[in-house]
Computed example of a mutant assay.
Amino acid sequence: MADNRASAYTEGVPCWADAQLPDLEAGKRFYGALFGWTFDGNGEGDGGEGNGKAGGNSGNGGKTYDRFVVARLEGEPVAALAPKTDGRMPTVWTVYFATPDVRALAARITAAGGQIVMPPTRADGFGTAALAADPEGAVFGLWQPGSHPGFGRRHEEGTFVWAQLYARDTEAANAFYGGLFHDALFGPDAEPDFGRASLLDVFPAEMPPHFLVHFRVADLGEALEAVGRLGGRVQVPPFRTSYGHVAVVVDNQGASFAVLQR
């Protein structure tokens, strides 16, 4: 199996991403046209992998794991879309970091000054998820795999390629995440797919700290034209980074993400 068809992820490696959207069908049309994704089921709990019932605290944090659909590229899982259960919650992409023990990691997060936004929540046999926030309030997910380890394809066109944390205090962010995910970030076999940068490098001062999920595209200009044609917009025009040529966009429902050309 090729490296980009990952079957397992070590702790601290981004392993999954999902979007919470007001209109699931509109999201499927947008991302299907933009990235060539196909989708399992219709979000009503009857569509194969990814539509299992979530146990435990499934409604906490405005997050649900009982009505999501898996996005696929050439048959492999690459992301998920889910309908929002609470209109007060943001329309947003969330990145999930792998862990073999979500409860132990949640305890380490709170001990390090973060907080748990949604306690560990089972999604049938697929795995166990939680949502956490770092000391500056940037929200991220945790994923303890069951039958679903995470991305089946990554680092290629139409799939996840990078997660960037935009923080107000990058030194504090490096200390927090370095303590949680030291081996994934700095170990000899590190493949973090995860960077930290100053919020003010890209966004206005009023923007809160956050994670930005990046998807790879073949041609950045063509991708931005497609975003506009599909009802989205460019939030931050193209800029150069150490990991590629990036633009921040908003989909047709308000969820921000980045497209990256390498």
Rank of each mutant, 00 (worst) to 15 (best):
L165H: 03
G187Q: 03
L180R: 09
G178A: 09
G158H: 13
G179P: 00
A173R: 10
A190D: 11
S147N: 14
F160C: 00
V161C: 15
R153A: 13
P149H: 11
D169I: 07
D169F: 09
F151H: 05
L142H: 02
P188H: 07
L180W: 11
E156F: 01
G152T: 07
R168P: 00
D189Y: 14
H155I: 05
G146N: 13
G141A: 11
F194L: 10
T159V: 02
D169C: 04
N174T: 13
R153D: 00
A167N: 04
R168S: 01
H155D: 15
Q164V: 14
P192L: 15
L142Y: 06
F160H: 11
L142M: 09
P145F: 14
G141C: 05
A190W: 14
F140Q: 01
Y166H: 13
V161E: 02
G187A: 03
P192S: 14
N174D: 15
Y166A: 08
G141D: 11
Q144V: 06
H182Q: 10
L180M: 06
F176C: 08
Y166C: 01
A190E: 11
S147A: 15
Q144L: 08
T170K: 09
G178T: 06
D169M: 06
F140P: 01
D193P: 02
W143Q: 08
F186Q: 13
L142I: 05
A167Y: 11
G146M: 13
R153V: 11
R154C: 06
P188E: 13
A175P: 00
P188N: 05
W143C: 07
E191R: 12
R154Y: 15
H148F: 14
G152K: 04
L165I: 12
T170L: 10
G152H: 07
H155A: 15
E156W: 04
G179I: 10
E157N: 12
G146V: 12
W143T: 06
R154K: 13
P145L: 12
F176S: 01
F160E: 00
F186M: 11
Q144D: 06
T170W: 05
F151Q: 02
Q144N: 03
P149R: 08
L180K: 03
Q144T: 04
A167V: 02
T159G: 03
A173G: 06
D169S: 04
E157S: 10
P145T: 12
R153M: 14
F151T: 03
F176G: 02
R153H: 04
W162N: 10
W162Q: 10
D183T: 04
A163R: 05
L165A: 09
P188Q: 09
